[in-house]
Design a binder for these strands. Sequence first.
RNA 1: GUCCCCGUCGUCUAGAGGCCCAGGACGCUGGCCUUUCAAGCCGGUAACACGGGUUCGAAUCCCGUCGGGGACACCA
Length: 473
Amino acid sequence: MATPPRVRFAPSPTGYLHIGGARTALFNWLYARRHAGKFILRLEDTDRERSTEESVQAILDGLRWLGLDWDEGPGVGGPVGPYFQTERLDLYRREADALIGGGKAYRCYCTKEELEERRRVFEKQKRPYKYEGTCRNRTDIPPGRTAVVRFRMPEVDETLTYTDEVLGRISKQTSDLDDFVMLRADGIPLYNFGCVVDDHTMDITLVVRGQEHINSTFPQLMLYRALGWTPPAMAHLPLILGPDKEKLSKRRHPEADVMLHRSNGILPEALVNFIVRLGWSHGNDEVISREQMVAWFGFDHVGSTSGVWNPEKLLWLNQHYLKTLPPLDIGARLLPFLAARGVDAARDPRLERIVLALRERSKTLVEMADLARPFFVRVPVDPKAAAKHLDHAGKRALALAREALHAVQPWTTLGIDAALKSVSEAAGLGMGKVAQPVRVATMGIPVSPPIGETLELLGKVESLERIEAALAS
RNA sequence: GUCCCCGUCGUCUAGAGGCCCAGGACGCUGGCCUUUCAAGCCGGUAACACGGGUUCGAAUCCCGUCGGGGACACCA
């Protein structure tokens, strides 16, 4: 590409950032970074009923959490702003007027009720609804009515074809298209029109969006022609499906919410890695760093088949990143999850070692926080674990362990292990018969890192006190 | 219903006519390791939707069937 590409992500602020949008944003971002182009963020806030300021914030927060920074858009500005559609109304009005002047669009005075009526008739006859052109050649102005602006679809049928960067050649007959509404009476544009005017005036060179928009590219192509503009290249991404194989939607699929994953203890690195592999591949690579994605990304390896959301693989990736990112970094991210459990570990010097000990037995930060909590606060002993490991035999072993542990000096993993081993040998018990009662007594649950390490991290005084308490109960 | 897109293991995918009686990953599963749970290591399971062509040769090209999804608003 001769000039640096300009791509955009254009969400409508009618809710949180969802997974499909996040992936669209990611692919746009990757493409821009790969080719040293610009990634533009534009808010399509033309649905007055559903657009909210909170949604705008939620989307920006989501993008930031994923590390997808934009070169132009809200907060950073840019040369072709404003970046909210409701702030560009004069632009749409101007182009609409020009189209009307050239006979390529016209004012339509039909009411919503009349249109609804016609739609019902079509439905009854099982025909696809198309606007019938009632106002196409109207010259009078009906009193007391407001006018929307409709596109005048040419009479002659024609095969419209364009080459999609992902799908290849795609065609449609213009006779399947109708005189769609471009502008509402109040001057607020509808999707097709606002999108075309903005993509053009923002110098977008490539439109990357979901396949659900594939049909709308045809009316848009007609708009480009009528306006005398060259359309940008198009890349339509395969859909992401829920476990039920239907398009991932906010209504039916809670996992569509990007930020839900954050609160579930998923790392953005894992989510991005997971999402990028939903539709794009690079040979047999599964774990792909941000740098590699940027270096490798291209639409030639974006597939054309929809992908199903696979939570197990996300968890696997998440654990991979838990295990490979710097433990101090993970520790910092674990803090809020601990705080939610009443633990302030911000200044605890054991944090890094605890992460190290727990990361291979945690799939999420939530699990890690749950496993970490007993290191910071005493938790009640789980009754089931107590019944199994703190019965008569268990307590006898525990009592022996207490004596041996008392003598351990210094309090290190090695020393603790040696002490417990001597107990198991002296009593003729398997190591498990000694370690499990100790583990349950100190941690409250039968799961923790190796016992020596667990006790060392817990500290000698605390360990012995907890053992004492368990013996007393 | 109409139009558009798609169809390789349960899932994500590699595959751009011979390298494929189809490879990797997740999952599931057998084993090893082991003081718990994991992690790790070794092995296994499982797919080219179907039917016609084209070709010496097709998962790869063409046609049809079936199946799946998406779009059909003064939503985006």
